[in-house]
Each structure stands twice: as C-alpha cells, then as structure tokens.
C-alpha cells in the first residue's frame, strides 16, 4: 500500500533521515520504533508532504507521491495523527472532527463516519460541544485519532499516540488502535512504548540516527536480545 525507498531528509545541515526504506502492506500494522531524535517524526512528516525529502521516493498504491503538497497527499488517502496531538483548542470537539472530514464532500457519508467515530469514542460524543483545549490529555489524543479517521484514510500514520498518558490510558489507546485496525485500516505506528507497539504490530522497523538498524515481525523483535536491552529496558527482560 505504502512504500518508502531510500529516503533522505535534512534540516539544513542536520541529516535527520539517511536512507530509509520500508513497506506498509495493506491491512497491516507496521511499527517504527527508535530512541529520541532517531528521525521517526521526520519520516512521518515527510510522508505527509509537510517536509520535502532530499532524495528518495514515496509510493502510495504504486503511485509516486514524493514532493506533492500535503493537501493532495491527504486527498489520496494518507491521514496523520501528529506528535503531541495538535487538536484545535478553541474549536469544539465536533468542529475538530468535521475538520478531519474537510476533504470529503458527501454529507451523508460524513454523518455516518461521525457516528462511527462516536461509537468508537463515546466520550467524544458526550463532549461534542466542549472546546477541545479543555479536554484531558487522553481525550485530546482520542480526538486526534477520531479526527484522522474522519478522513476515511487508506493509511493512517500515528506519531506516538500514547505519549504522556497514564498506563491505564495507554492500554485503552492501544486497544482502540487494535479496533481501528480491525475495521480494515492500514496503520503505520510510531512509538516510544516499544513493548506495546511490537506486541500489536505485524512487522516493525528499528530506527537509529536516521537509519534502519533492524527489522522483523513484532514477535521476533520482542525476542531479540538487543531490542530487549535497549528498547524494553534490561530490568524488564526477566518479567
């Protein structure tokens, strides 16, 4: 569905991504893990067209979308949950969700999608008229997820959806991600929480200073010694 070939991205002199290739097959959950500053968010922003790559190609369903403006990439079916949520704070929950459906025109379909999102996140329905900025952190993350779903994307990109959430909420978010996947979405998931991400993902890539250093199925990586030491924390290996 989505394929990245030898991607290079720089911020001026800083080479943030140095030759990444990865594949996100249809209907799968792919995880991208790595330490801080590894270049995960940079990769995601480049897929969305928010950054222009130095070189490399990005293909969606075989078509080259490299360097297209974000609005066209979104229209072709890629939607993003940005790092740090970025909801529209002074707009209501409802308005935020409707903005997610901005590229769609069929009113009936939008209404149905809204009902669907409300079914997935009943808390958003209760708070539909509340200003997004007054939601709790977890609720804002759900809103960011719901908003991205409103576009009915073919591929959903998520940048650290569990960032800054209490453990109970992290679990809730991950079970929601699973449900979103069960509804037939293809997901590319960035996570610091490697254990949860690897448990969920069909396939995962490990990123370090802009390069992919390891890849494999989630289960394989969970068993890998190096991954256990660096990303899961030595203390947890026994448990």
């Amino acid at each position: 569905m989505l394929e990245i070939i030898d991607l290079h991205v720089s911020y001026g002199a800083i080479k943030a991504v140095q030759g990444i290739s990865l594949k996100v097959p249809e209907g799968k959950i792919i995880a991208l893990i790595g330490t801080n500053g590894a270049g995960k968010s940079t990769t995601l922003r480049t897929i969305c067209g928010l950054l222009k790559p130095e070189s490399g190609r990005i293909l969606l369903e075989g078509q080259d979308i490299t360097g297209l403006p974000t609005k066209d990439i979104v229209r072709r079916g890629i939607s993003m949950v940005p790092e740090g949520r970025h909801v529209f704070p002074d707009l209501t929950v409802y308005e935020n969700l409707m903005l997610g459906a901005y590229i769609r025109t069929d009113r009936k379909e939008i209404e149905e999608e809204l009902e669907e999102v409300y079914r997935l996140f009943p808390r958003l329905k209760e708070r539909s008229q509340q200003l997004a900025g007054t939601l709790s952190g977890g609720e804002q993350q759900m809103l960011a997820l719901g908003r991205a779903l409103m576009a009915d994307p073919k591929v959903l990109l998520m940048d650290e959806p569990s960032l800054g959430l209490a453990p109970v909420l992290v679990q809730e978010i991950f079970s929601l991600i699973r449900r979103i996947h069960e509804r037939g979405k293809t997901l590319l998931l960035i996570e610091q929480n490697a254990r949860a991400a690897l448990t969920l993902a069909h396939y995962a890539y490990v990123l370090e200073t802009g390069r992919i250093v390891m890849e494999g199925t989630g289960a394989d990586l969970l068993k890998n010694d190096e991954v256990r030491r660096i990303y899961l924390g030595e203390g947890e290996v026994a448990g």
């Binding site: 969305c48 928010l50 974000t70 609005k71 979104v74 229209r75 993003m80 970025h86 576009a151």
Partner: peptide, 10 residues
C-alpha cells in the same frame, strides 16, 4: 489555531 494541523487536514 494551528497551521500545521490544518495543513494535515488537507
């Protein structure tokens, strides 16, 4: 409210 997020909405 947020130019980047607005852009990401298409």
């Amino acid at each position: 409210e947020n130019e980047t997020a607005a852009q990401a909405m298409g």
